[in-house]
Write a protein that binds this DNA or RNA. Structure first.
Length: 107
DNA sequence: CTCGTGACTCCCG
DNA sequence: TCGGGAGCCACGA
């Protein structure tokens, strides 16, 4: 499945994230080959989320929190995740230890 | 080629 | 727990 570009890898990886599980920007970036291109992952979502029909809501930050600001998609993402069974604690955080997706689980 | 741009992450205080 | 500052990087114009 491995295409050529970093972007393509990222898209492919995000597509591999199963429902009820999430991943972080940095992790996706690392899987794509660059652990420091986390920010790039975010930009890719913006540029290809709709086009590639990516499950963008399954990508959150390292703290287990939604990076999107309120009224900018935050609520939507939270809803989508909760709909998949992801639980948020009182701090609006998810327990990464429980929902964090591991490529080994899927592969 | 150069420049601007982030849905990030780490480090400090 | 929270916020500010700096580093890092691929991509489009």
């Amino acid at each position: 499945m491995r295409r050529q570009g970093f972007t393509n890898q990222v898209i492919s990886i995000i597509h591999s994230i199963p429902p009820g599980r999430v991943s972080t920007y940095g992790m996706v970036a690392a899987m794509a080959g660059n652990s420091r291109a986390a920010r790039q992952v975010a930009r890719i979502l913006h540029s290809s989320s709709a086009r590639e029909d990516l499950p963008w809501h399954r990508v959150i930050n390292r703290q287990g929190r939604i990076s999107l600001p309120p009224f900018q998609g935050y609520e939507l993402q939270k809803s989508l995740l909760e709909a998949e069974g992801v639980v948020f604690d009182s701090g609006d955080r998810v327990e990464l230890a429980h929902v964090l997706w591991s490529p080994e689980s899927a592969e």
